[in-house]
Amino acid sequence: MVNASDGNLIYVSIQYRLGLFGFLSGGEVAKDGVLNAGLLDQRAALDWVQRNVRAFGGDPSKVTIWGGSAGGGSVTYQLMAGGAYDEPPFSAAIAEWQPLLNQSEQESQLMTTLNLANCSTINCLRSLPVAELAYVNQAVENASYPTGGDGFGVFYWGPVVDKRFIQELPNMAFSAGRFYDVPLMVDHEAYEGYIFSNMSLTTQTAETTDARYLFPFAGPAFFSRLYTLYSRASFNSTFYQRQTWFGDWIIDCPTYYMATNAVDRNTNTSAVFKLTFAAGSEVHGSTTPFLAAGVGWPAANNHTLAEIMTSYWISFAVTQDPNPMRVANAPFWPSYVSGGEGTAAEGESVGFDTLAVTYTTISPQQDPDASARCDFWNGHGYQVQN
């Protein structure tokens, strides 16, 4: 991407702690340390960039944060950090989503960690060698799956609502407008749930057993509505039924929440853009070969598409709009508010326009996630925080 930018872009890659090193939580950790240490690492790095980026040719007023998968979830949490009470150390964001553990599951995770490390206190954990903690980190995952909060397709360690850096669930923060007012770009692949779903599940009963590990606080009404919206008859297999609702829960629908709330809350309502990607492998992470996998995109199966995609990302980073610096053969990417009828005063001006990328076409379409399915997930934030 830097190579393709012709000198217009500086890429700063940051490191942050993962697993129990960055995301061990629970009451004892909160009392004698901090929760979400990995997110605080990221914020420290972003603050460092603000102080130092001029020294290597950057502009601190034009910092775009971007991550994929859990990194994209981190971008979302940086957008809502501390209730967005101050000036952010970035000026634009390309975001995704990531689930959260609730408080009882945090305590269970902490107790498992202490037990497997033969410790009774946090200070004991702190005294252990890094290599031993890394072993415990994996042992906790092995011992916990499957249990409440650790179902198929999630990674157990991750951010939590700590009432400080992450003050509330993301669906609540975005609906209340407690996120930074910066230009926003969101995207998702066609089959986000594919690699996170278990192919051995062949009945809805087995699928529900698996789902109860993901959502231990969801009850019969939740599952009744889930299977009304994602009826088995609508899919050619239990696997595709599950991958569809999992993908909607984990990434697809959150892009809809973020885009719609950014349009409603941001000063510049036109600086919100959404893309759906049904090319390459079409599964989670399939945009990577077209954006960030080496000079000349060696892993991309369509170099023309890679040039187009990369130009959108470069343009957004430099101008906060994917269009001004796009390559000549790249179609115009409409903002999320485009395509509506009437005027803003009449409440009819938002068209929910996205850019749909397929193997053969790139064209605007109405947001496929503006749906009853996504309204269902948005309305059950507490049940599915897992």
Rank of each mutant, 00 (worst) to 15 (best):
residue 89 P to H: 08
residue 71 G to F: 00
residue 133 L to D: 03
residue 143 A to G: 07
residue 82 G to L: 01
residue 89 P to L: 05
residue 125 L to E: 02
residue 87 E to G: 14
residue 86 D to Q: 14
residue 131 A to E: 13
residue 146 P to V: 11
residue 164 R to K: 14
residue 49 V to C: 10
residue 36 N to S: 09
residue 152 F to I: 10
residue 34 V to A: 14
residue 119 C to N: 05
residue 130 V to C: 13
residue 75 V to Q: 00
residue 44 A to C: 12
residue 55 A to E: 15
residue 104 S to P: 09
residue 143 A to R: 03
residue 42 Q to E: 07
residue 145 Y to G: 08
residue 108 S to L: 14
residue 75 V to R: 02
residue 125 L to C: 06
residue 157 W to D: 00
residue 138 Q to E: 11
residue 53 V to E: 02
residue 122 I to N: 03
residue 33 G to A: 02
residue 159 P to Y: 04
residue 85 Y to I: 13
residue 32 D to C: 13
residue 119 C to G: 05
residue 37 A to F: 12
residue 151 G to V: 01
residue 108 S to R: 15
residue 80 M to H: 03
residue 85 Y to L: 15
residue 44 A to D: 15
residue 138 Q to Y: 10
residue 167 Q to C: 08
residue 46 L to F: 08
residue 147 T to R: 11
residue 140 V to A: 09
residue 102 N to R: 11
residue 55 A to L: 15
residue 162 D to G: 09
residue 39 L to P: 00
residue 73 G to I: 02
residue 111 M to H: 15
residue 89 P to V: 06
residue 42 Q to G: 04
residue 103 Q to G: 10
residue 82 G to Q: 05
residue 77 Y to K: 04
residue 156 Y to K: 13
residue 28 E to C: 13
residue 93 A to T: 02
residue 25 S to F: 01
residue 49 V to Y: 04
residue 56 F to L: 09
residue 148 G to S: 10
residue 92 A to W: 00
residue 29 V to I: 15
residue 154 V to L: 09
residue 61 S to L: 12
residue 91 S to G: 08
residue 151 G to Q: 08
residue 134 A to V: 11
residue 139 A to C: 10
residue 55 A to V: 14
residue 24 L to Y: 06
residue 151 G to K: 00
residue 126 R to N: 14
residue 129 P to W: 07
residue 166 I to F: 07
residue 91 S to H: 14
residue 153 G to C: 06
residue 162 D to A: 09
residue 91 S to D: 12
residue 111 M to R: 15
residue 132 E to T: 12
residue 56 F to G: 05
residue 58 G to L: 02
residue 36 N to Y: 01
residue 27 G to Y: 13
residue 27 G to V: 08
residue 114 L to V: 10
residue 28 E to M: 09
residue 99 P to V: 09
residue 66 W to I: 11
residue 166 I to N: 01
